[in-house]
Computed example of a mutant assay.
Amino acid sequence: MHIGKPHEATTRICQASAETVEVRGRDLCRDLMGRLSFTEYFCLLLTGREPTDNQRCFLDLLLIAIAEHGMMPTVQAARMTLAADPDSLQGALAAGLLGCGPVLVGTSERCGKLLVEAQSRLAAGDDAKVVALQMLQDIRKTGGKLPGFGHPVHRPTDPRAERILELADARGVSGPHIAMARNFRAAAAEVWGKPLVMNVSMPIAAVLLDLDFPVATIKAVPLLARTGGLLAHLAEEQQNPIGFTMAAHAEAAVTYKNTDEGGG
């Protein structure tokens, strides 16, 4: 049984033969190895194009900005998984990546969709500040969460976010999406009645969109970055095991309550 409409199955990414490996129309060994950095190669794989200088610069910057942030739940999951199965590095890495969703790490994708929606409204001739205010009012009214704002550690600003914006301005890549991100920050303060921290996810999305990366590729950047961070933690876990220690502390922090003792 075929699900969906029949169509020709194709790929534009890679084909390997006995003599060569062709990637995006280029010979891997002769054209790419020894010429491209991994960041440049990642851009080629992801988009089909080699990056401009600014695209390469900001991909490097964003990968560095989001790769590591301490003992996050994703890191704890990875390290405890490796403690339970020391031979399964790939399983432990997967355990960490599976926790990269819309609450942790994956928020930049939601920010990108919000920014794209805002630009579609601007195309209809609406004022940018009015659009930002209306969109955030709608989110607040429906009880939704505003992606790209708020942080449990970084206050009153997220230094990573501010540095991305600073460098985007300095290199002249700040465009309509970064401008809208700043409009969102001003609107958030008005709608929520207090300044909200713009976290790193919003500038990640904004600068990628201003550099002409498709919105569908945004989440790939923090996922690749966190893969590097997770592998560092797993290498350390092999040398300095703390996975079971974290598990013991987690168990000690949770109080068991018998339902027969009241409270439902």
Rank of each mutant, 00 (worst) to 15 (best):
L208D: 10
L208Y: 11
L208I: 07
L209P: 14
L209R: 10
L209F: 08
L209C: 08
D210N: 04
D210H: 06
D210Q: 08
L211C: 09
L211W: 03
L211K: 05
L211Q: 10
L211H: 03
D212H: 11
F213T: 06
F213C: 01
F213K: 12
P214Y: 03
P214S: 02
P214V: 08
V215E: 15
V215D: 11
A216W: 10
A216I: 05
A216N: 06
T217R: 08
T217G: 00
I218H: 04
I218P: 02
I218Q: 01
K219I: 13
K219T: 13
V221L: 00
V221M: 02
V221A: 06
V221I: 10
P222T: 13
L224Y: 04
L224W: 06
L224T: 03
A225M: 04
A225E: 00
R226H: 06
R226I: 03
R226M: 00
T227P: 05
G228C: 04
G228A: 10
G229W: 03
G229Q: 01
G229K: 09
L230W: 02
L230H: 00
L231E: 09
L231M: 13
L231C: 11
L231R: 09
A232L: 07
A232N: 09
H233A: 08
H233Y: 14
L234C: 08
A235D: 15
E236F: 05
E237I: 10
E237G: 00
E237T: 09
Q238G: 14
Q238K: 12
Q239C: 11
Q239G: 15
N240L: 15
N240Y: 14
N240Q: 15
P241F: 03
P241N: 00
P241R: 11
I242D: 09
I242A: 12
I242K: 11
I242S: 14
G243R: 05
G243V: 09
F244M: 14
F244P: 10
F244A: 13
T245I: 14
T245Q: 12
T245S: 12
T245C: 09
M246H: 03
M246I: 07
M246A: 07
A247L: 00
A247T: 07
A248E: 13
A248L: 01
H249F: 13
H249K: 13
A250C: 00
A250D: 02
A250G: 11
E251N: 07
E251M: 12
E251Q: 10
E251F: 07
E251S: 05
E251T: 06
A253L: 07
